[in-house]
Nucleic acid binder design. Structure first.
Lengths: 194, 194
DNA sequence: AACGACCCTTAACCTACATTAAGTCCCCCG
DNA sequence: CGGGGGACTTAATGTAGGTTAAGGGTCGTT
C-alpha cells in the first residue's frame, strides 16, 4: 500500500504523531479498479470515504432515458463518493467508476467513526475537506445556472487544465451538461469568440 | 437574543456543558435584516457562518445579463452563505438577501477558529453540518443535470413543501432554473402529466 | 383615492441545444 | 491481418425553454 499522497494531503491540515499516523494507516484498505469497473452503483450503500491515488474515477447519475451526467472527476489526490449514502448509510443515487485503471484507498464508515473518537483531530481534517467541497459545489451550481455552454466549457478548461486533454471529449461534455455532438460542433465553430 | 433554535440544532449532534454553551452564546451576534436588505453582495468577504432564526434568506448569483439564479433558500433553522468566501476569507461570488423581514445569528470567522480550539466538539458539529450540505448539493446537481423543468418543479415541491406557497413564484422559477414566464406556462399547461 | 411597485399571465416569436442518423478514424483484440 | 467497438464528426431536423411585449391584479404608501 502506498499512502504517502494521502498522508501528505492530511499533513496540510493537521499534524499527526507517528502513532496516530500508524493507527490511521492501519484502517486503510487498498483497491485496484480497472477501467470501466464500478466502485459503486446506484442503490448501493457507500462503504466509506474513498481517496484516489492513481488513475481517474468519476461519479455520475443516470437519467430515465439512460443518459449519464457526470457529477465529479477524481484524479489522484481527490476524494469521491455519494456523500448522503456514506454519511447516512443509505442507498445512493450516484454511480462511480474508473475511466482508467486506477487505485484508491478507503476506510469503513464504522472505522472512520472510531477514528473520530480516538483521534479527534480527524474531525477537523474532514470538516475542512467538507467545507472546501461545499465551496466547489456552490461554484459549480453558479456555473451551471448562469453560464452558457461555451462559457461552461471555458470555465472547465480553467479549472481542470490537467484533465482537459486526458479525458475523452464525451466525458467533458457530460460534465458541462451538453451532448457530445453539441460540444463537438461548439469546438469547431467557436474557435474564436464567446 | 434568542439562540434557542440554534442550541437545539446543535444539541442534535453534540452535547455541550452549560459553560461551553455560554461561551458559544457569548460569541454570537444578532442581526435583523429587513426584506430586500443584503447580508452579502458579490465581492464581499463573508464575516462568518450565518444561522437563520426568523424569516427567509436566499443566496443567488447574478449573471452577465443581470439575471438572478437562486442557489439556496434559508428558512429558520438553516445556515446560509458563500462557503469559499467564509472559509478562505476571500471575495465571494454570491449575493445574499432577505425575502422577508428576518433575523439571523452569526459569529466572526476568527471567533469560530478560537471556538474550534477551546471547544473541539464544534469541529464535529460543523463537520456533520458540512457533510449534510454536500449531500444536498450533490442531489441538487443531479436534479439540474438530469431532470426536465417539470420534474425539477415537482422535486422542489417535494423537498420544500413549506416554502412552495410562501415564496413568490419567480423565486421558485429562479431556483429550478427557468424563467418566471416559463414556469407560469408550465403550471397552466401541465396540470396533469409529466 | 390614486399612484407606483411588484408580481403574475398570455401569446407570438426565437434560439440554444437535443435528437437522429450517417459516416470516419483508430485502436484493441482475435 | 481483419473486424468490431468506441470516440469523434457532420448535418438535417426537432423542441424545450427563452425573449419580448403587453396587460391586469394586488398591495402598500401618500
Amino acid at each position: 500500500m502506498e499512502p504517502t499522497l494521502l498522508l501528505h494531503h492530511i499533513a496540510k491540515h493537521i499534524t499527526l504523531t507517528p502513532e496516530e499516523q500508524d493507527f490511521f494507516t492501519s484502517l486503510l484498505h487498498e483497491k485496484k479498479i480497472r477501467k470501466k469497473q464500478f466502485l459503486n452503483q446506484e442503490g448501493d450503500i457507500a462503504k466509506g470515504p474513498v481517496f484516489v491515488t492513481e488513475g481517474i474515477l468519476r461519479s455520475y447519475s443516470l437519467d430515465k432515458n439512460g443518459f449519464e451526467h457526470v457529477i465529479q472527476f477524481a484524479p489522484p489526490g481527490w476524494w469521491i463518493g455519494d456523500m448522503n449514502s456514506m454519511v447516512k448509510q443509505q442507498p445512493g443515487i450516484l454511480y462511480c467508476d474508473a475511466l482508467e485503471d486506477s487505485e484508491v484507498l478507503w476506510l469503513w464508515k464504522s472505522d472512520l467513526d472510531k477514528l473520530y473518537i480516538t483521534v479527534p483531530k480527524f474531525e477537523r481534517f474532514f470538516r475542512i475537506l467538507a467545507e472546501n467541497a461545499i465551496g466547489t459545489y456552490q461554484a459549480r451550481l453558479v456555473n451551471i445556472l448562469s453560464l452558457s455552454a461555451k462559457e461552461r466549457y471555458a470555465s472547465f478548461c480553467q479549472l481542470y487544465p490537467s484533465l482537459i486533454d486526458c479525458l475523452p471529449q464525451k466525458q467533458v461534455a457530460s460534465y458541462i451538461g451538453v451532448t457530445p455532438e453539441f460540444l463537438s460542433k461548439m469546438l469547431r465553430t467557436g474557435e474564436g469568440q464567446m
